[in-house]
Amino acid sequence: MADPSNIDFDALLTRLRDGDRKALAELFTHHRPQLRRMVELRLHPGLGGRVNASDVLQEAYIDALQRFPHFFDKPDRSFYVWLRLVVNQSLVGVHRRHLGAKMRSAGAEISIDQQPLSGVMSGTLARELVARMDSPSQVARQAEALAQVEEAIESLDPMDREILTLRHFEELGNDEVAQILGLQKAAASNRYVRALQRLRDALAKLPGFFDE
C-alpha cells in the first residue's frame, strides 16, 4: 500500500507501542497524503467548505493520539487500515453533526457490518475523473462530461464506488480493502472485478470517453 520509502515502520510501531507519541506523528505524516485523499473524496459538498480535509485529519490525529494503544490490541490489521478507521470515524462524525438526518439520504454514509463508513461522493469522484480533460474540445465538453460521468458513477452501487476508490484512489491492496470493508479476501477481490466491469459499462455509454 504505502510507497516503499525509507521509513522503518516496524521501528516506528515498536516505539509507538512503548508510548512514544512522536512515532505516531511520523506515521501520521507519512500516511497523510493517502488519508487526505481518502477524506477529500468523501467530504460531502453540502458541508459548504465549513470543514475541509485538514480539519478532519486534525481531529483524527487527536483521536489517534488517545486511541493508539487499541491498535495493538488487534495487531492483525495494518497500521494504515487502523488509522484510516480513525479518520473514517471523524468523517462520519463531521457529517452527522453537519448534515444530521440528511446524511443517509445524501449518500454520505454506507453501512457494512453495522459499521458506518463514509461513502465516496459520486460527484467528487466524477470531478476527479473529468478534471484532466483539458484539450479545447474537452474543455468545451467538460460540463456535459462531468454530468455524464457523474451519472455513470451514480449508477454504480455505493459498494462498487467504494471498492474502486480504495483500490485506485487510495491505492490499497486487496488485503487491506478486505480488512476495511470487513470482507473475505476472495469476496473483496471478486467484488473489485465486478465493480470494474460495471464502471466500464457505465463509461462505455459516454460518447467518446475512450477516444483519446
Binding site: 459538498p45 458541508l47 459548504g48 467548505g49 475541509n52 476527479e128 475523473l129 484532466r132 464502471l199 466500464r200
Partner: peptide
C-alpha cells in the same frame, strides 16, 4: 475490456492537483 478503465482512473487521478473541496464550496 477492463484495463482501459483502469488506465483512465490512474491517469486522471495522478494529474489532479489537490484542490480541496473548499475551492468549490459556496462562500459564507
Amino acid at each position: 475490456d477492463l484495463l482501459p478503465s483502469i488506465a483512465m482512473m490512474e491517469k486522471l487521478k495522478n494529474s489532479r492537483r489537490s484542490q480541496s473541496s473548499v475551492a468549490t464550496a459556496p462562500r459564507i
